[in-house]
């Protein structure tokens, strides 16, 4: 029984992901220092892109951080454009990669899409930041490497976390299985 994600469902899932862009950072604020390391706002955007496709991923990537800044003041306005650019690319790339990559198994698809999306996001936002904020003073390489160096624990966490979330969603039948197989479980 293969069922596709309907448009309405995609839309509502995107809404839920946008909401999580605000809720997750707040939940993590209870843990000191976690926000900077775990980058909680990226997770719903990536998942939205992976599950719903690039259009919705893009929307989530833009609306998530902006709405969060508007409603809670985090991220601060100075950081916002850079972050929104990054998450927008995350959403688009994740969705696009999931559409193109089909390795016949869920986890490889997810890892490839995630890594590509994160790399692209960091590079493009790094370039944008370099152009906007320093008008060519610091080299692009410096910006890009800086963002990787400080954020690598968060990246690792995302790579561990996100496939686990998607797998759990599939197992709970909340999203259609990417590669449905005959169930062997008889109750």
């Amino acid at each position: 029984m293969k069922h596709q994600l309907s448009e309405v469902k995609c839309a509502v899932l995107t809404a839920a992901s946008i909401a999580l862009c605000i809720v997750l950072p707040m939940a993590f604020h209870a843990i000191p220092n976690a926000g900077n390391i775990f980058l909680p706002m990226h997770i719903p955007v990536l998942i939205c892109g992976l599950v719903c496709g690039w259009r919705y991923g893009l929307l989530c990537g833009i609306a998530g951080p902006v709405l969060s800044a508007v409603l809670t003041g985090m991220p601060p306005a100075a950081v916002l454009p850079g972050m929104a650019a990054e998450t927008a690319v995350f959403g688009v790339a994740a969705g696009f990669m999931m559409k193109t990559v089909h390795t016949k198994r869920l986890f490889p698809d997810l890892y490839i899409s995630l890594i590509t999306a994160i790399l692209l996001g960091k590079v493009i936002s790094g370039a944008a930041k370099a152009l906007i904020f320093s008008a060519g003073q610091y080299s692009m390489a410096a910006w890009v490497s800086a963002s990787f160096i400080t954020a690598w624990p968060g990246l690792l966490l995302q790579l561990a976390l996100i496939p686990a979330v998607v797998a759990a969603l599939e197992k709970s039948k909340l999203i259609p299985a990417r590669y449905p197989k005959k169930s062997g479980r008889f109750q």
Binding site: L13, A15, S17, A19, L24, A27, V165, A168, L174, I175
Partner: peptide, 9 residues
């Protein structure tokens, strides 16, 4: 949290 969010959605 994601399960809850997607469930409600």
């Amino acid at each position: 949290v994601f399960l809850a969010a997607f469930r409600r959605a």
